[in-house]
Amino acid sequence: MKWGVLQFPGSCDERDALNACEVSGAQARLVWHESRDLDGLDGVVVPGGFSYGDYLRAGAIARFSPAMEAVAELAAGGGPVLGICNGFQVLCEAGLLPGALLRNVELRFICRQVDLLGAGSSSPYLEGIAPGERLSIPAKHGEGRYYAPEETLDGLEATGQIAFRYATGHNSNGSVRDVAGVTNKAGNVLGLMPHPEHAVDPLTGSTDGRRIFEAMARFAA
């Protein structure tokens, strides 16, 4: 398994994402936003940060980058794509994932460890993460309030596209139905607001983030 990790002007978590791919047993290299070259890569991580300064709306400009065109092709071909935080926002803006991320309900930037629960995703890439499995992962964002219209949410629940929910008391951004992460219909594109790439070493308190990288790499291999 070889991951590409996108790098936009304003990305800031790409190094940790590279490290997370590697400690989870895969290889990884950076992909500059102006490059369409995903040769030799099996999957892509769209990392956190503030791509293009979050101008207009978070993720709105990044979605038009050449690298994102290549990511859309990879996703259409069934390759795994993992969007974290700003990467989740980019994937929603690009239409690769349903919904949108809005300003946190309390208007404050949130930086804290949160508990996520496996939501019974139907994605083959998340096999091995059981419904109700608890993952301790840091969250840090100002615009993480997941929103989709009610009928869309009903559809996502029916098709098993809700990947993660915030545990009770951990939904501090005000996301609808406690949604922390969703997949596309095929299950190969996953986006979530908290940062699994920051939870891969006991030094920082939790290694639960590895579970997500390992699960995606296992299915891709």
Binding site: L56, R57, A60, E93, A100, L102, Y147, P149
Partner: peptide
């Protein structure tokens, strides 16, 4: 396509 996100 760009200035607004019609979903929200």
């Amino acid at each position: 396509k760009l200035l607004a996100n019609p979903l929200i």
